[in-house]
Amino acid sequence: MTVPLDSLDALAARVPDGAFVALPPDNSLCPVALVRALIRRGVRDLSVLGVPISGFATDLLIGAGCVASLTTSAVTLGEAGLAPRFTAAMKAGALHLTDATCPAVHTALQAAEKGVPFMPLRGMIGTDLLPQRPEWKVIDNPFADAPDPIVLIPALAPDLALIHAAMADRFGNVWVGRRRELATIAHAARATLVTAERIVEGNLMEDERLAPGVISSLYVSAVAVAERGAWPLGLLDLYGADAAHIDAYAKAARTDEGFRAYLAEHVLGPLPKAAE
């Protein structure tokens, strides 16, 4: 099976309205160029899963009206503070939010990648989170001698994992380096769409040193090139986050008008690169 090499807009067109999409956090190969393309294509009613938390990319999607529901363990812009469009949407009651806690998100995906219906996870008993999540069931550990309550987390299989890789080959293998938690998202999701900084010659899976950081083409449905595709977020050791830009966004997006102006300038308007 050949993995197609799409344009960025063609890749975005593969995300249907209403899809259940998993996004990595801001510090781990978040596909921001693809998110901008999704906003330009006018995607609607996404259910977004933050693995395990959400940040800049999800805030853009929320502000642009693309998100119907969000499951995540936190939404934050890190040192730049609160995520303004998330905060505004919560205040307006415009977003259906399901709170989680980071390891529960990972555990739900780990169950999905194993093809089992649930996995147990420690903690959470006595929190106000647990009663908010009736699908998380407490059982008595059947292997313990004494009573030992433990939480079961049902498996969660997103329709699509969306990630930005440092490189891809022409076979559809993509390299995420030490960010191998991305593989868990890809394994758990029904399909994975990838943007990559660049296409390399040869086969990444045949390079013994690179293969451990590869998500194989088995999981990948399509790839598009997006140079600086994580911007304004950082990407591994290739480039750092553009803190000044994120700060400016955090201030501008506090108001609806400020956010609209940001979208017009940086997402909908004159494109910074021919590639986008």
Binding site: V75, F86, T101, A104
Partner: peptide, 16 residues
């Protein structure tokens, strides 16, 4: 009154 980012990993880390 004002929504903050969220639980992060606290509901797990406090126990483990």
């Amino acid at each position: 009154s004002a929504r903050l980012p969220g639980n992060f990993g606290s509901a797990f880390m406090a126990f483990t």
